[in-house]
Simulated scan of single mutants.
Amino acid sequence: MKIFDTGDVRLHYRVDGPEDGAPVVFANSLGTDLRLWDPILPLLPKGLRIIRFDKRGHGLSSCPPAPYAMGALIGDTEKLLDHLGVKDCVFVGLSIGGMIAQGLATKRLDLIRAMVLSNTAAKIGTKDMWADRVRAVQDSGIEPMADTIMERWFAAPFRATPELELWRNMVVRQPAEGYAGCSAAISGTDFYTPTAALRLPVLGIAGSEDGSTPPDLVRETIELIPGSKFKIIRKAGHLPCVEHPQEYAALLTEFLQSVGHV
């Protein structure tokens, strides 16, 4: 475990693989930590430099007072990658992680040569929806909404397995302040115009049963970027890397090969 102090927040991060490997950076969804990617890592090509981190207010990173701005989350990621000497990575972002990817590519294209936008969009939800969620978390914590979150995250077959408890426990153990802070960041984000100006290889991934970012919403964002590719993973919700790791890793590996990253 390693901690990087950006000056504003202390980020927990992990690097796996050789120092000179082609860098692949992963950014997690709201309510999860860097373990989100554990199911797919053993299935990826060997020799990659895998970089994962907990965004502010999540996992083992510090939790500043809410609300957060998307610009702060992007800046945290930018500082971490500069600290690690990363250039020309493939950036894989899921949900809010995909929003961070879009913003970082707009700001620092020298850091990212290609990206995977998974279960995300240029704009997610409405200000009123997020305001309601922030109030609910601040009033009662995450536990009362955990079952509803699981319904958005996973298709029915996965929710019937014992593994569901792992992910339910993960979300309820995130700091309520961090969940509310990142919810506010999503609420204030609309990347339709900057994302439409991006010119780099992009793979979009959606889950057919995703209740947070439905396939049509993901597709709409992916199609803003010329030459992008879009794939749907069937019988998967918001976290297809958990439900169908082999299919997800195969799509990611194919994309890494197509852009010459492995």
Rank of each mutant, 00 (worst) to 15 (best):
I3Q: 04
G7W: 09
G7T: 06
G7A: 10
V9I: 12
V9K: 06
R14G: 03
E19K: 10
D20R: 13
G21D: 13
G21V: 01
A22C: 06
V25F: 02
F26I: 03
L30D: 01
D33I: 02
L34P: 07
L36N: 03
P39N: 09
I40G: 06
P42Y: 02
L43V: 01
L43F: 03
L44H: 00
P45R: 04
K46P: 06
G47A: 03
G47L: 10
I50D: 02
R52L: 05
F53N: 03
K55W: 05
G57I: 05
H58L: 04
G59H: 01
L60N: 12
C63G: 04
P65E: 15
P65Q: 15
A66R: 00
A72W: 02
A72H: 06
I74V: 15
T77C: 11
L80C: 05
D82R: 15
D82A: 14
L84S: 07
G85I: 07
V86N: 07
K87P: 01
V90P: 06
F91V: 03
V92S: 11
V92M: 07
S95R: 05
S95A: 12
I100P: 00
Q102I: 03
Q102H: 10
T106C: 11
T106Q: 13
T106R: 12
I124N: 15
T126H: 07
Q138V: 04
D139L: 07
S140R: 15
G141I: 00
G141T: 09
I142G: 05
E143D: 06
I149R: 09
M150I: 10
M150D: 00
W153T: 04
W153R: 09
F154L: 12
P157C: 03
F158D: 12
F158T: 04
L166C: 02
L166D: 01
W167C: 01
R168S: 08
N169R: 14
M170K: 14
V171I: 15
P175H: 11
A176Y: 03
A176T: 02
A184D: 05
G188L: 11
G188R: 11
A196Q: 11
L198T: 09
I205Y: 13
D210N: 10
S212D: 13
P214G: 13
P214K: 10
P214T: 08
P215Q: 13
D216I: 13
T221Y: 02
E223Q: 14
P226N: 08
K229S: 14
F230L: 08
F230G: 08
K231H: 12
I232R: 08
I233N: 04
K235E: 15
A236D: 04
L239I: 08
P240E: 07
P240F: 02
P245R: 11
L252A: 13
L256E: 08
Q257N: 11
